[in-house]
Simulated assay, not measured.
Amino acid sequence: MKKSLSMFCLLFMVIAAGLTGCSNSDKSAGASGDGKIKIVAAHNQTSPENPYQIGMKEFKKVAEEKSDGNIEVEVHAGTLGTSESELVEKLKLGAADVVLVSPGFMSKTGIKEIDLLALPYLFDSYDHWEKAVDGEVGDKMADIINKKSNNDFKLLGYWTAGVRHYYGKKPLHSVDDLKGMKLRTQTSGVVANYWEKTGAIPTSVAWGELYQALQQGVVDGAENAYPYFVQQNHHKTENGKYITETAHDYTTRFLLINGKKFDSYSDEQKKNVLAAAKAAVKKEREALYAQEEEYKQKAIDEGAKVNQIDREPFIELAKPLQDKTAKKIGMTDMLEKIREMK
């Protein structure tokens, strides 16, 4: 009898411990609403002045303030990887909870519709871009990302990495000047296809190695927005000091959270995360817009040469690619909507 009673007590203690463990697990995951959650947020830029970092710090600030400290955000600026494909993989596997990535890298996950927002000369101003991403087009893309990723990715908002321009060893005066030039850019997808049409040779170089590649002539040039390449001193290299304002991409960046992780949060936690994301979108855009002119002037002051160019031939080269890509990915209607917003 005593032996049976002892066994019963032992069994009861094991079950109770298991239930307590489940309860604690639920709280740490945020399922109870009372537990504290930690969000690992990451981007690929290393400069503390970068708009990505400014936006992520705002996300952290608002999430922690609104939750009275029940949400902790840990921001990684390039420390979880400077490769966007790596960040996407870490988000999917749960090694990161919130990441910032470009359409080019997201399309590699098999969500082909994303390529629409990577098309060169799709937008002609920030006003045009904002109308699209903050309206019907942005809503539709967010829905596609969530459904086609099987809820691995939920879109929290659209950031921008600025308007991209060419910079290289010589100024551009026409499209023909690009022929045979090794240009650091994406080497696959619609971006690479466009530069190949200009006659350039898309060349892969890691962002952290680009300064040296420009200095040593591994590549003849690159393309990016002022805050990004000037903060990295690319304009001070032999193959980076001539800037031609091609304005070929008003860029879109996706602020993503792991959808399954988000669904595990309580309603209050979800509300606070969404509020933090909204504040971060506003802050990041404001920082980027302000830095465009600031870093352009800094480049000029430090010896870079800036010239304008007739963009029409570049735009005409892009239109057939836009039409062909939109048809291939089933986004012709969305392309037309974006064009009508100009």
Results as ranks from 00 to 15, higher is better:
residue 276 A to L: 06
residue 277 A to W: 06
residue 206 A to W: 11
residue 262 F to H: 09
residue 259 G to T: 12
residue 227 P to M: 05
residue 271 K to V: 00
residue 237 T to D: 06
residue 201 I to Y: 04
residue 212 Q to M: 14
residue 263 D to I: 05
residue 238 E to R: 14
residue 205 V to M: 10
residue 224 N to G: 13
residue 240 G to A: 12
residue 258 N to A: 00
residue 220 D to H: 05
residue 272 N to F: 00
residue 198 T to L: 04
residue 239 N to S: 12
residue 245 E to G: 03
residue 241 K to I: 01
residue 237 T to W: 10
residue 280 A to Y: 06
residue 248 H to F: 03
residue 194 Y to S: 12
residue 240 G to F: 12
residue 211 Y to M: 00
residue 207 W to V: 11
residue 220 D to R: 02
residue 250 Y to R: 07
residue 224 N to P: 02
residue 215 Q to C: 03
residue 270 K to F: 00
residue 276 A to Q: 06
residue 221 G to Y: 07
residue 268 E to Y: 06
residue 221 G to E: 05
residue 197 K to P: 03
residue 260 K to Y: 02
residue 276 A to E: 04
residue 243 I to A: 05
residue 217 G to N: 08
residue 263 D to E: 15
residue 234 H to F: 10
residue 232 Q to K: 11
residue 218 V to Y: 01
residue 207 W to S: 13
residue 194 Y to E: 11
residue 271 K to P: 01
residue 244 T to H: 11
residue 194 Y to K: 08
residue 203 T to I: 05
residue 252 T to V: 14
residue 220 D to F: 00
residue 238 E to V: 14
residue 214 L to V: 01
residue 241 K to S: 10
residue 271 K to G: 02
residue 208 G to L: 11
residue 230 V to T: 09
residue 199 G to T: 03
residue 213 A to Y: 00
residue 199 G to D: 04
residue 230 V to Y: 04
residue 222 A to Y: 03
residue 270 K to P: 03
residue 203 T to A: 03
residue 264 S to N: 15
residue 213 A to S: 15
residue 216 Q to H: 14
residue 238 E to I: 10
residue 247 A to T: 06
residue 257 I to G: 09
residue 198 T to H: 07
residue 217 G to V: 07
residue 201 I to D: 06
residue 277 A to H: 12
residue 279 A to E: 13
residue 208 G to P: 01
residue 208 G to Q: 12
residue 246 T to Y: 04
residue 196 E to P: 05
residue 215 Q to H: 03
residue 261 K to S: 05
residue 281 V to W: 10
residue 280 A to I: 03
residue 267 D to C: 11
residue 258 N to Y: 04
